[in-house]
Design a protein around this nucleic acid. Structure first.
Lengths: 167, 167
DNA sequence: GGGATATAGTTACTCTATACAACTATTTCC
DNA sequence: GGAAATAGTTGTATAGAGTAACTATATCCC
């Protein structure tokens, strides 16, 4: 039962039949958060499709790419770069390990921490995944030219990392 | 206990001490999904701060703005425009109703559906919230010029709504 | 050298978001 | 008038995100 049944109707009841049909987002299009969410939904949907066959989630993909680029990266660094919190990193790395894509190696310098490395299987997979991801980004942004895509990336980078260079 | 204890160490064990310090996102910066997520995190963080005093979540704000622009909008239209599913709309509208910001009015044309309207309190609040949201977007994108902000919005719109005009 | 403090990782718990299945009431299609 | 579709609701399941508390180790400082 709708909550309104318990409340007094208000002045707008007179306007009742004003508008019902499908409504575009015109009014919200000036809201950055709305635009970011809608764009991210679309890009992630394409990404999920592209990765479905490999059963890889966005954070897993990003982690693999970072580990490839920085072999021996610690979980704390991963957390920072992925902008996720330490508990999620534990879970993430557990998954990668149990699937044989990465391994933890206890650091000799600081025995509290682990260096994370890709296995050969992980190295092979990340190459495939990067190609798939690039393709998925292209199809998700079909309407944009290469220049516009680069513009978009540069602008986004400058939003989340204010000290990023303009070009 | 880390999963790796149960696995054979792999070839990279030799490289163990390679890299640990904080790692920037350089390697991922070409990934659209990563950039979108990071930017959205930042924009939403500012938004949450701006709205904390009013205890308004992003979806609630967007709903209020849509209802203001399309009085009598149905829940189905709300779901479409907000890109959330019908069960969440029910919950959302329940919250707005119980806080006295909006009301459901049964449609005479189609008695399955409701038109959603703002109460006077809702109308007053949405004016305040829109100003706060604009201010929050500005501070979240401090590094950008007005022109770049508009460029970013236009590019995002063309990503999620491919038929959107270039300018 | 040794105790206080900080850090890396882990576990547990909470809250929200998202997705999906099933159901009621009503409308539309044939 | 009956079959199929639609608007809204309820319930359930899973993932994302934030927080608190804990262990083991390292660093700081007297």
């Amino acid at each position: 039962m709708p909550v309104s049944d318990k409340k007094t109707p208000i002045h707008q009841v007179m306007q009742e039949e004003v508008e019902t049909g499908p409504v575009d987002g015109l009014i919200l299009e000036e809201r950055l958060g709305y635009a970011l969410r809608r764009a991210q939904l679309k890009v992630f949907k394409h990404f999920d499709e592209a990765m479905r066959e490999h059963d890889i989630r966005p954070a897993q993909f990003s982690a693999l790419v970072i580990i490839e680029g920085y072999p021996g990266v610690t979980q704390a660094s991963l957390a920072q770069t992925l902008a996720i919190d330490p508990p999620r990193v534990v879970n993430l790395v557990n998954t990668l390990e149990s699937r044989g894509l990465a391994v933890r190696v206890r650091s000799k310098r600081d025995r509290r921490s682990y260096g994370i490395f890709l296995t050969r299987a992980g190295e092979a997979l990340v190459v495939t995944l990067k190609a798939l991801s690039e393709q998925s980004d292209l199809t998700a942004t079909q309407g944009l030219s290469d220049i516009e895509r680069r513009q978009l990336l540069a602008l986004l980078r400058r939003v989340y990392s204010p000290q990023a260079p303009e070009k």
